[in-house]
Amino acid sequence: MIRIFNNFSSQLVSGFGWTILSSLLTLIFSLIFGVLIALLEVIPNKAANKIGRIYVEIFRNIPLLIIVMFFYLIVPKYFVKIDGFTAGTIGLFLYTSAFIAEIIRSGIQSVSQGQMEGARSTGMTYKQAMRYVVLPQAFKIVIPPLGNQFVNLIKDSSILAFVAGFDLMYQANAIASVTFDTINSYFVIGVLYIIITMPLSYYMQYLEKKMA
């Protein structure tokens, strides 16, 4: 195991980098997009609510692998050429957005009722009340579940291995097929995944406790 760490450090470092890059890109874009979808779901407009709802239900109910494969195999065939890393990250982004939207929506709805009316009664518009009163509080409530979603996202990014996305899992496959030492190759990247995910999820547990 130590041998694998030494002999393949450059592959492991690059895999680690691609995994982090994909996860961060996905996190940033799906936070923005997720908030937008959540807003669609809560604003007083029936059509917008429907659109938001449909998006969330579709992307939460189909496997990530299908979304990623769609972007890797079908989109380049009929539309534009994108590589494995991009296809995987776009798939992750669309998938994660649905989950983030769901978290934010329930966050907004848990503060909304009285707060919104209170803020409106002081003369704020709907937009202002949402922006200055409801959303800041909602964000506070949803930080732990968002953090857990981020942990899930890092784990899910291993899907990149299916589309030659150069991430940790892909590197482990490559290392295993050279060293023929399957268990230890996967063990090494298991340690690397744990290094990223475990502190994060402990921190989220700590926050959850502090807020309770």
Binding site: K155, D156, S158, M169, Y186, I189, G190, Y193, I194, M198
Partner: peptide, 18 residues
């Protein structure tokens, strides 16, 4: 905590080959 912080793909590999 160990198991839920690992990608499922890894757990599948460990089970099948382990």
């Amino acid at each position: 905590d160990i198991v839920r912080n690992l990608p499922l793909l890894l757990i599948i590999f460990f089970t099948y080959f382990g």
